[in-house]
């Protein structure tokens, strides 16, 4: 984690849908190379905030910068420098692994030679070069999730947004998935992740917990556990959510 380099700077972010305030005055920073856990109960407003940071939605007010670009005026530049993996599975199941890679490489303007190199690298990281020409739908769910993650960081984004990436995945695959996340973070990719699994929250460098549109806590998992006198993140979360 490099605290001198701010990848995300959010000040007083407000998002309203009519009279409903989904994000109530959020202020936080995300630093280069850190794994930032974005937690909250369903409906707490975390997906809304994430969608705003990705350019899928416009904020009502507040100043926001992603990778040094302004969310209001430079969203095209932001889009080139971020990766995104949605809650739902984000690869095309009726395309082969190589075709998916080719498609996403094309979107991000990665040329032929560079693509070949990165595809090779990606398959090696997955430890399964032989799946190149298999249809994605023929792969087990865990493999697909890992593949989707690697495709999301294939264009070397400054930051990757992961929206509940491990939903419905078995514990072993979840652990492997987190190994990939650590590996990417070690390579300098900042990871912004939302999750429901509190054990995963403990893997994060820093965690923010949202309750009813507000950030109620933001610190390292260890400090949060100390503050709330808790054994694990689950207790911290329940403590905050109940008050």
């Amino acid at each position: 984690m490099d605290t001198s380099r701010k990848i995300i700077e959010v000040q007083n972010l407000v998002k309203k849908f009519g009279h409903f305030t989904a994000n109530d005055n959020l202020t936080f920073d995300v630093f280069g190379g850190e794994i930032f856990g974005f937690l909250g109960a369903n409906g707490a407003g975390k997906t809304t905030a994430m969608r705003i940071l990705c350019g899928l939605s416009k904020p009502t007010s507040g100043t926001l910068q992603v990778n040094g670009f302004d969310v209001y005026t430079q969203s095209e530049k932001i889009k080139k420098t971020i990766g995104y993996m949605s809650q739902k599975f984000s690869l095309y199941e009726d395309l082969t692994v190589a075709e998916n890679i080719r498609f996403y490489a094309g979107i991000y303007g990665i040329g032929y030679r560079e693509r070949r190199k990165r595809q090779q690298e990606l398959l090696e990281r997955l430890k399964m070069p032989e799946i190149k020409n298999q249809l994605v739908k023929s792969l087990p769910l865990g493999w697909r999730q890992k593949l989707a993650f690697l495709v999301a960081v294939m264009h070397n984004p400054g930051i990757v947004f992961l929206d509940e990436p491990t939903g419905g995945v078995d514990p072993v695959t979840r652990r492997q998935f987190w190994e990939l996340i650590y590996e990417s973070a070690a390579r300098g990719v900042t990871v912004f992740v939302t999750t429901h699994y509190m054990d995963e929250a403990e893997y994060c460098d820093r965690v923010s917990i949202m309750v009813d549109g507000k950030i109620e806590a933001l610190d390292t998992p260890r400090k949060l556990m100390e503050q709330h006198n808790a054994q694990n993140m689950e207790e911290v979360f329940l403590h905050l959510a109940r008050n």
């Binding site: 990705c54 350019g55 899928l56 095209e76 889009k79 080139k80 971020i82 995104y84 993996m85 949605s86 809650q87 739902k88 599975f89 984000s90 690869l91 095309y92 199941e93 996403y104 979107i107 991000y108 303007g109 999301a152 947004f161």
Partner: peptide, 13 residues
């Protein structure tokens, strides 16, 4: 429905 539309909208396209 598949969620790929979001990925496309987040991309530079």
């Amino acid at each position: 429905e598949l969620g790929t539309m979001e990925v496309l909208l987040v991309s530079p396209l």
